[in-house]
Design a protein around this nucleic acid. Structure first.
Lengths: 225, 225
DNA sequence: TTTTGTGTAAACTTAATGTTATCATGGAAA
DNA sequence: TTTCCATGATAACATTAAGTTTACACAAAA
């Protein structure tokens, strides 16, 4: 599940919060950018076109709710995810937030862990391909249960094995170059040896017991029945 | 996936980096040109009209960011791909880079492998022609599935065979000189014997079972039904 | 702490693919 | 018709990519 490349913009007037949240989301692999008030949030959102914007409700210049409705009025931000940070008590802005089209809200004081998991959940929910059980022939691959089923028989794959299989199976028939596989499953910046993919492929073939991964020599691998 | 013919300009003031990157991208089949400062980068970009420009952010004369925004302001470089090389810590220029319209950025210290895969990925993302299924009569040639289908029957070709067939079929009726075929499928710096093409042609004819490749004696080959 | 599972690397084997050498063939020019 | 030459055919050979196995490092679980 690569989180790489997802851009998150977080706007809050408290530097501490910016820092803590940035750090924790950054650790998850997201690209995090910050803004310290409402106007800056809008400006940077336009520059960056982030995948997710986290808005504090109480901010100088413009409140989170205002920012949200301004952004939502533009086509570019129709699909952008927005999370509000609200004071626990502030029920009113919670409601306003949902009205103006927020996707989630998190109450202060923030637990980094909670926020991170909400963010992940949001991306998972949205990312259409993500979390969808793939069914190809009598093989079903469920990334939520993290499980592969062949004719009712459950098969446990290790993490990397599963990710690799899921990638291939996500576009049956399509050939994935080794490079593509590396960058999607391992991440762009991870360097692993040449044989590593083979070994994983082999383990998958072994565990599945069904020949559904085809080698296209000199090119890559593809999933097909 | 022929990378041949793609021109890359790389600008950096460190000769070592120029050399390493040139070598690695050259090995991939790209044509690589270099510049050692911002002004030279702009000058050569205008001469060469490269497909991709890799800019070090910290350069004498003009920084990469400056070069980028200058180039981007001209119509000619609207479509040109641009990658920044930045020091790991330098968040500010990363952001500036994205603002000025960079397509990707890579942190120093550079791993040649990473850079190469980023470059490939970038070209793949952009190259629209790539992955287009050719359909001529009842023959379809799908470079994504890496597969040839004739009247519903799937036929497996080896890599070179497929590339050769794909080339010929990309312009049905057009005669490809042996020289052209060599440089497109094998690359111009690869030297292979005279009979090599024939052998591959023969294998394709054999596997397809349909006579769709015509010999134009003394000239070359063409694809036609 | 020990155990177990997972991911990666290294060394080696196997198989697929690509290339060349050689000779055959068949058509065009002389 | 004969000669020449480009290409076809085939098998041997070379090269390269992938499969296999083992080992080891590391982290999570017991």
């Amino acid at each position: 599940m690569e989180t790489k490349g997802k851009r998150i913009l977080i706007a809050d007037d408290e530097p501490d919060i910016l820092e803590i949240v940035s750090y924790n989301l950054g650790k998850e692999g997201y690209e995090v950018y910050t803004a310290k008030d409402g106007n800056e949030a809008i400006e940077r959102a336009k520059q960056l076109n982030p995948d997710l914007i986290i808005l504090d409700v109480m901010m100088p210049k413009k409140t989170g709710v205002e920012v949200c409705s301004i952004l939502r009025s533009q086509a570019l931000f129709q699909e952008t995810l927005i999370i509000f940070l609200t004071a626990l008590s502030d029920e009113a802005s919670h409601i306003k937030g949902l009205e103006t089209g927020a996707d989630d809200y998190v109450s202060k004081p923030i637990s980094p862990k909670v926020l991170v998991s909400r963010v992940n959940a949001l991306f998972r929910r949205v990312n259409k391909d993500d979390g969808k059980t793939l069914k190809i022939g009598n093989i079903s691959i469920d990334p939520v249960k993290f499980m592969v089923e062949i004719e009712g028989k459950e098969i446990i794959l290790a993490k990397k094995e599963f990710e690799l299989l899921y990638l291939l199976a996500s576009k049956p028939g399509r050939v994935f170059l080794r490079n593509e596989i590396l960058s999607q499953v391992w991440g762009m910046d991870v360097i692993v040896g040449d044989r590593t993919i083979d070994v994983h492929i082999r383990k998958i073939r072994q565990k599945l017991g069904v020949d559904c991964i085809t080698t296209v020599k000199g090119v890559g691998y593809k999933f097909e029945i």
